[in-house]
Design a binder for these strands. Sequence first.
DNA 1: CCAATCTCTGTACAGTTGTATAGTAAGGCG
DNA 2: CGCCTTACTATACAACTGTACAGAGATTGG
Lengths: 201, 201
Amino acid sequence: MAQRQPGVSLRADDLTAKARIRNAALDLFAAHGVDATSLRAVAAAAGVTVGLIVHHYGTKEALREAVEFAIVEQFAETIASVPLGSYPPDQIAPERDRAVAAMLSANQAIVDYLRRAILDGSAERGDLVSRLSRLSAQQVHDLREAGVASTKHTVGEQVVTIMVRQLGRLFLQPLVDRIADEFADDTAASTRPHLVVDVSH
Amino acid sequence: MAQRQPGVSLRADDLTAKARIRNAALDLFAAHGVDATSLRAVAAAAGVTVGLIVHHYGTKEALREAVEFAIVEQFAETIASVPLGSYPPDQIAPERDRAVAAMLSANQAIVDYLRRAILDGSAERGDLVSRLSRLSAQQVHDLREAGVASTKHTVGEQVVTIMVRQLGRLFLQPLVDRIADEFADDTAASTRPHLVVDVSH
DNA sequence: CCAATCTCTGTACAGTTGTATAGTAAGGCG
DNA sequence: CGCCTTACTATACAACTGTACAGAGATTGG
C-alpha cells in the first residue's frame, strides 16, 4: 500500500484511486447535485468500477462526507497558510480573506458544492456550514487573542460577516451573469455589473 | 368537466386535481429539488395516483414546465395588480417592488424553487430566469414609456438591479440564518444581522 | 338513453439506483 | 516459499424511477 502524504491534495495527476474517486465525486456533486449524481457516474469519471467506491467509502453518504471533509480541510489549510506572524498584525485578516478568495476562485467545484450544500437546508445532515462556521469562529478567536480584531461585535456577528461577504458574492454571481447574458446585445460586455454583498448589525 | 376560472390560483382549498398536482409539485420541487422528487411523492402529496399525473401532464418535464409557468404567471399578476394609473407616477416602481416582495414572502415555495432553478444553471432548459427577466424588462419598458424610469442606465442594467435586489436577499437569507443560529447563545436573538444586497454599474 | 368524453385507478415494465458479495491480482512479511 | 492484507473487478439483487396502458366511473351533449 503506497502510503501518501497526509493532507488532502485536491488536484494532482497521480493520485490514489481513492483520492481520484473523491475528486470526481466533488466535481459531479458540485455540477449536478448529490442526489442527481450516481455512483456509476462517479466511477466512470474516476476511471474505476462501482465496486471500488463501495470498497473505499462503503456508502454514498460516506463518500459525500469525505468530500465535505476535504473541503473543510482545504479551507483550514488555506487559512493556516497565512500564520499569525507572517504579516503585520492588522493585515492578517485581510490577507487571509485574500487567500481564501484565491483558493475559491481556483476551485470552482468547491464554490458550486457549497452553494448547493447551503441552500439544501443542510441543517439536518453532515453540516458543512456548521464546520465552516466553527472554523471561522476559531479564526476570529485567534485574531482576538493576538489583539487584532474588533471586540465591538460578538463573535457570531463577525463570523456571519466574514462568511456572507466571502460566499455571498460567489453565490449571487451566477444570477447576475445569467441576467447580464440575457441582455448581452444591450449591455456592453465591458460594463458587467458589480455585486455588493454585506451585512449590517 | 367543471371548468374553472382561468388565471392560476396557487393556493386554495378546493381545486382541480390538476391544480392540486401542480401545487404539490411546486412544494416538493422547492423543498427537495426536481430530481430528488418522485412522481409518486407528488401523487401522494396531492392525494391522487401516479397515473393521473401522467394523464394530465404527460411527463415529469412537462409538469416542471407547468410549475414554472405558474410561477411566472404569479409574478405577472402581482405586477399587474399595481397598474400604471393606480399611484403617482414616481411611486409605481417602488409600489410594484413592494407588491412582489409581499407575494414572495407569502409564497416561500416560489422563493425556494427559484433559488434552485437559478443555481442549477437553468440556461439550458425551460429557462425560468429568461422568462422572469423578460417580464422585468417589459416592466422597465412600460415605466419608461410612461416617462417614469431613469434612462441613465441600459434596460439590462436596470433588470439586473431589480432582480438581484429582489431575489438576492431571499437567497442569501438562509445562509445568514443558519450561521446566526449556530451562535444563537452568543448573538442576542434580537440583533439578527441585516443583509445588504445591491449592484453597482 | 346512448355514445362520447373526461377524470381517475391499478398494474405492468424496462431502466437505473445503491449496496452486497464472490472472486482475482498483487505486494509485504514471516 | 506460503500467508495475509489490500486494491480492484464482475455480477447480482432488491428497491425505486418515469412512463405506458387497459379499463372503471362519472359527466355531458345530442
